[in-house]
Simulated scan of single mutants.
Amino acid sequence: MTRREPPLPELIDRFADARGVPEDSEWASTAVGRFLLDDVREEIMVRELTEALAVVESTGQGPEELFGPAVEWARDRAAEASAAGEPVQDVAPTYSWRGIPGFGLIFAAALSVPVALVFGFTDGWRQAFSWDVLLVPLLLGLLMSTVVVSWQRFVERWTTVRAGAATAAVVLPLVFGLAWLLPWLSAQTAFEGSALWWVAVVAGHLGLGALGFWTLVKQSGRETAGGAAPLDDDAWASSVAGLLRSRLSYGDARAQGIADEARAHAAASGRPLAEEFGTLQDYAARFRPDRDRAMRWQGILLTAVAVYWVGKLVVELVTPGDGPGWWTVAGGVLFPLLAWWERRRGGAVTR
C-alpha cells in the first residue's frame, strides 16, 4: 500500500504545528507561492516541503534558520530537481483555438471592474449607458484572448519572427475593426439609470467569466479523454521545439538545439523519440523556463503600449478642445507604471 502524501494546505499547517510557531507556516506559504509562480509541479512541491518539514520536526529548528529565505530555497530545490533530469515544470499543452471565447469571457470579467470604477464615479449619479461602455470589456477581452491564443499557436509551429508577423496579421484587422465599431456604439444608448446599474453590469460580466472558465475546463477534459495521435520523430522534435518556444519562452536557436540533441540521443539508442522521452509535456518539463527572455519581451511590449498612450495624452493636452478623456488619462498613467513595474520585476528575478 502506497503512502499518501498530504495536500499542500495540510502541509503548510503542519509547519506551524511542528514547533508551535505560526511564522513557520508563513515560510512554507511563501515557498509554495514561489513554486507556483515558477510553474513547478505539485508532486515536486509536496515532496520538497515534506522533506523540509521532517527536518524541522526532527531538529526543532525553524525552516528559515535551517534553509534560509523561502524564495531562494524554493528556487534552489526546483533547479536541483531540474538538473537531475526530473520533470519539474507544469507544462500545459498549447492553447486551442476553441479556447478563445472562454479566455475572452474571463478577461472580460477582469476588465469589467476597472471599467465600472472609471465610468461609475466620473459620469454622475444619473447616467446614459451606451453600448460601447457596456460591451468594451467583452470586446477587449475577446481581442486579448485572440492575441494570446494566436501567438501560442503560431510560435509553436514557426520561428518567433514568423509567429509575430502571423499574429499581427490576425490581430490588426480586429484592432481596426474595433476602432471603427466603438465610436459607432458610443452613439447608441442602451438605457438610462443610476450609477448603481454598474453593479449589475459587473455581476453579468463575472457570470460570463465563470461560464468561460467552465467551458475551458470542459474542453480540457474532452481533449484529455480523447488523447493524442502518436508522433513520428520529425513531428515529435518539431513539436517539442515549438512547446519550448511557446510555454517556456525559449529562443528559436535554443529550442531547436534541445530538439536536435534529443533526436541525436534517440538515434544513438535506436528507439523512437516518443518511446525514449515520453510525451512532449513530460520532456519539456525537464527544462526551466527562460523568465529573463519572457520578461524582456513583456517589458518591450508594455513600453511600446506606454509610449502610445503617453503620446496620445500629450496630443490631447496640447490640442484645443475639452482636454483628454478619462481613458486617455488612465492609459497615460497606468501603462508607464506597468512598464516600470515589469522592469523592476525582471530585475528582481535576474538577481
Rank of each mutant, 00 (worst) to 15 (best):
M1G: 14
T2S: 13
T2N: 13
T2E: 12
R4F: 09
R4W: 04
A16W: 03
A16G: 14
A18M: 03
R19P: 03
G20W: 01
E23A: 14
D24L: 04
S25E: 12
A31L: 03
A31I: 01
A31P: 03
G33H: 11
R34D: 11
R34P: 07
L37Y: 09
V40T: 01
R41A: 11
I44S: 07
M45R: 02
L49D: 04
L49N: 02
E57N: 03
T59S: 15
P69D: 01
E72D: 15
A74T: 07
R77D: 01
S82I: 04
A83L: 14
P93A: 14
Y95D: 10
G99R: 10
G99H: 09
F103V: 05
F103G: 08
I106C: 05
I106E: 01
A108S: 12
L111Q: 07
V113H: 08
D132R: 11
V133D: 00
L134S: 05
L135G: 00
P137K: 08
L139E: 03
G141W: 04
G141I: 08
G141D: 04
L143R: 11
M144L: 14
Q152L: 07
R153S: 07
F154V: 05
E156F: 06
A169S: 13
V171I: 15
P173T: 05
P173A: 03
L174P: 04
L174G: 06
V175S: 00
F176Q: 09
L178V: 08
L178R: 07
L178D: 10
L178W: 08
P183C: 06
P183A: 09
W184L: 14
L185K: 01
L185Q: 01
F191Y: 10
G193P: 00
S194Y: 12
G204I: 06
L206K: 08
G207K: 10
F213H: 14
W214N: 15
V217Y: 07
E223N: 12
L231I: 08
D232W: 10
D232G: 13
D234K: 12
D234I: 07
A235K: 00
V240P: 01
A241C: 07
A241V: 00
A241I: 00
R247D: 00
L248S: 03
A253S: 10
R254K: 14
A255N: 00
D260K: 05
E261N: 09
R263A: 06
R263K: 04
A266H: 03
A267K: 13
A267E: 14
G270A: 09
G270T: 06
P272V: 09
E275T: 15
T279M: 06
Q281L: 13
Q281A: 15
D282S: 15
A284V: 03
A285I: 14
A285K: 11
M295A: 09
R296D: 11
R296H: 13
R296C: 08
G299W: 01
G299T: 15
L302H: 06
T303V: 09
A304I: 11
A306D: 01
Y308D: 14
V315L: 14
V318T: 11
T319H: 08
G325K: 07
L334I: 10
F335I: 05
L337D: 07
L338K: 00
L338M: 09
A339E: 00
W340F: 13
R343T: 15
G347C: 07
G347H: 08
A348N: 12
R351V: 11
